[in-house]
Write a protein that binds this DNA or RNA. Structure first.
Lengths: 148, 148
DNA sequence: CATATATACTTGCAAACGGAAATAACTTGC
DNA sequence: GCAAGTTATTTCCGTTTGCAAGTATATATG
């Protein structure tokens, strides 16, 4: 429990809140999805068969199972994801990424990358970007299902 | 818009979500406050006269003004914060940290530091903690009212 | 094979949040 | 000093979320 840990954790929360707030506006206006919906599509895209059981998706997104249930419903209606059943286990209902969902993800990815560019713009050198990727990557390692 | 920017931004969101989720449980159980309430107390604690106009508090916390209004109400009832008016401008209503609020913040601070310790434990060297503080500090610079 | 326990998902309920509209107070340009 | 525009705050309404309870299915234990 080093002294700087607390400060680092506070800044982590602050920076994330700032970025998320900026992202939310453009995502809603341009792509019609929320930041969490974007992250859900992203988790699915990199999963085997581009699908995941709801419980696993909840773990990776750090939200509750009920949140996944209610997030998936409207996304199914507009065709971003679909529902699949498991032959071996009738309890599990996979959330599957559709082609439409993949297309929407690709579009939103561009906006995300642009905003990420603004965030780090003129602040860090290329070397520092690499250092940060290394450090935060080790944090994400502890999380279930790190994104890329 | 470097290639690694997007990955770094995703990991930033992921790490923050993970930490926030872990923190929320212990905060609610042990201290009876939410993570956002903790951050509000923290912002007030380091402000001049330990008080801030609601709009400024909203900006610093990356939430809407209405959220500050509704967050402050129950916190006033239990004496964590109080309301003060501005003599020069009758529109602004300061949120002021009380002694009770400062005490509660101090208690919660210990839990926060403990959880922050878990987050970075055995992952980063002291040098790396310093590097991270430097990097994320430059990000927070862009945000209004960086915490420490 | 029957019962107990564990797991996956959904639903009801209450808390938290953002955006728009309403109100009040300040500031600017003339 | 007055009209027009701006700023600070609150309230209303719809959306998102977590937790607890309920249902269905799977696994373990005797």
């Amino acid at each position: 429990m080093k002294q700087s840990d607390e400060q680092n954790a506070v800044r982590l929360l602050q920076a994330a809140d700032m970025f998320r707030a900026r992202l939310a506006g453009e995502f809603a206006a341009v792509h019609g999805i929320s930041v969490n919906e974007y992250l859900m599509l992203k988790h699915l895209a990199q999963a085997a068969k581009t699908r995941l059981p709801r419980v696993e998706l909840a773990r990776r997104m750090h939200v509750s199972a009920s949140t996944v249930t209610r997030m998936a419903a409207p996304m199914e209606k507009i065709g971003l994801v679909a529902r699949e059943t498991d032959e071996r286990d009738a309890r599990t209902a996979f959330v599957v990424l559709t082609q439409t969902g993949q297309a929407r993800l690709d579009e939103a990815e561009a906006t995300f990358a642009k905003q990420a560019g603004y965030l780090f713009e003129d602040r860090w050198t290329d070397t520092e970007r690499g250092s940060f990727a290394d450090l935060i990557g080790r944090l994400a390692q502890r999380a279930p299902g790190p994104l890329t």
